[in-house]
Nucleic acid binder design. Structure first.
Lengths: 145, 145
DNA sequence: TATTGTTATACTCTATAACTATA
DNA sequence: TATAGTTATAGAGTATAACAATA
């Protein structure tokens, strides 16, 4: 028995190893596609919808506005995103994904989901769907902090 | 509609914000009890069961053997853990939690669970229990990587 | 020679603050 | 003056490699 009298384990203590496994799964996939993790995160966020300012994008992916600049530099240079000054307010940069960027994002995500499914395959059938829904609900409610 | 044609979002992309929320919840609690996050992680691991080598403990909490040394130094100095050379092999250090350490761990964990329950309170009733079970199953199966 | 724990070093990641350009 | 973006600097966190003690 590895369980304790205290009832249940901490959520973070359970999610930590899970996160490490997921990252270990993702890293080789990302490397195979020639893209770094945060860059993929940016690409995914922009694939969901364009963003008006870099600060908003940084906030959306849980990063700092200063941290994503070099990432955006590289993505733009590779033609994976566009990054244009807003004509209405030339201080802000309008960000969106290009067709090429979207194709890369979808290819990477398909591979990642395939690997994730192996991990989720250990779950009973109905549980898997419920779990994904619950995670989604919690993660979106967690953003409003 | 924030959803994409791609089906579902990445697990890591959903768990990331959730982890950040949990850490944001834990930090003030840990600070109030005067213990750092990794130190609490060590205390929790040793509260579940003693460990024979420091490397095994490090592995168990997902850290590096060199990283936990100063943490163990402090925990020992504060009388929260014991750390004795194994008489049978004096290279290894036998690690266990003291009564004082266990009391602290339980106090901190109680506070953390209380805060976590607020977050989980947004879930429908039955779903919450199922979610905890699934997370537990996945996290333990994730350790065998 | 192999292993445990330790220390020292270098490297990466991240946060803070200062700067520019626009408004 | 205030805001978006950028750059530079410093700090924390982490990994790598070398070392000492024991087997």
């Amino acid at each position: 028995m590895t369980e304790e009298a205290s009832g249940r384990r901490d959520l973070a203590a359970m999610l930590g190893p899970l996160m490490r496994s997921l990252i270990a799964i993702e890293l080789p996939v990302l490397e195979a596609h020639g893209i770094a993790m945060w860059a993929y995160s940016v690409l995914t966020a922009l694939s969901e919808s364009p963003v008006r300012t870099q600060a908003a994008l940084a906030d959306e992916i849980g990063a700092d506005k200063t941290r994503i600049i070099k990432i955006l530099d590289e993505l733009q240079e590779r033609g994976l995103i566009t990054r244009e000054p807003d004509p209405g307010d030339r201080r802000v940069r309008l960000l969106s994904v290009t067709a090429k960027g979207r194709r890369l994002q979808q290819a990477v995500q398909a591979d990642i989901h395939r690997e994730e499914d192996r991990l989720l395959g250990t779950l009973p059938d109905g549980e898997r769907q419920r779990f994904l829904q619950t995670i989604h609900a919690l993660s979106t409610s967690a953003r409003g902090e």
